Simulated assay, not measured.
Amino acid sequence: MPKTTDTTTTPPPAAVARDPHWAAKLERLRARKPATQTLTICDDATVRQNLAQAKTEHDTAVAYGNEDSQKTTAQALEAAQAAFDEAAIVLTFQALPSPAFQALKEAHPPTEKQAEDDQAINLDTIGPELVSQSSLDGLTPEDAAHFLESWGTGEATQLFMTAWNVQNHVRSDLGKG
């Protein structure tokens, strides 16, 4: 049985003395959800181009401060965005708990050749499992393997990298000392 951490402990008195809001902060920390990232795919080049053009026209209207033009271009942008949203496929990925991600990496050790090239994992085998395990859309390892093998290199790389990058996503700032 894996070791778990008790999350119902009382904050140390020294922490509460330094920050009377510590208990509320601690509760917020405990309630955090894992990071997510999306990959948006739109196969319709015309829809993508129309959205890009509408964004450019609206940005130009805003830059010049023309209120009538801003209103017109905002409506066109809204319509282009709606068409894009209708045509697009959005895949969402979520960070795995650290122990699960570590176990996944350990389950896919590098080949001898990959190790000689200083690779820590086998990128050829981890992809389908990583994409599947981090997918919030229910992608199976078989689906992921099919996409990674049949899509063009750029799109397959984006699929893998979205699943990989969410594992390393940072939502914090070190701030000023």
Rank of each mutant, 00 (worst) to 15 (best):
L174V: 10
T46F: 10
L130Y: 06
Q119P: 01
V166N: 04
E106P: 02
Q102P: 00
H21A: 14
E106M: 04
S69W: 13
L29Q: 03
H58Q: 14
F84N: 05
D44G: 02
P110H: 11
I41C: 00
A45I: 04
Q75Y: 12
T125H: 05
A82Q: 11
T4Q: 10
L77N: 09
E27K: 14
T5A: 06
N168C: 07
G138C: 07
L104P: 00
A61I: 02
H58N: 15
S132W: 03
T36E: 09
I126L: 04
E67K: 15
D143K: 09
D117S: 11
N165E: 10
T72P: 02
A76R: 03
W22C: 07
Q119H: 15
E67F: 13
N165Y: 11
T157E: 02
S69Q: 14
G65A: 06
V62F: 13
Y64M: 09
A15W: 15
Q81Y: 02
A45Q: 12
D43Q: 06
E142K: 12
Q49C: 01
T10N: 09
T38M: 10
D19Q: 12
Q53K: 09
T60C: 02
A95H: 11
Q114K: 07
D6W: 07
H21W: 08
K55A: 02
K113L: 05
T162V: 10
P13R: 00
P13F: 00
T56R: 11
R18Q: 15
A163D: 00
W164A: 07
L136H: 01
T36D: 00
N50T: 14
D117Q: 10
P11E: 10
Q119N: 13
T140C: 08
A87G: 06
K25H: 14
F160S: 08
L130P: 01
S135C: 08
H58D: 13
Q133H: 06
A31K: 08
Q53Y: 07
K25P: 01
N165S: 15
D44H: 04
T9P: 01
V47S: 04
M161T: 13
D44A: 03
D43T: 03
D118F: 13
T40Y: 01
A61N: 08
A82K: 14
Q37G: 12
P109H: 12
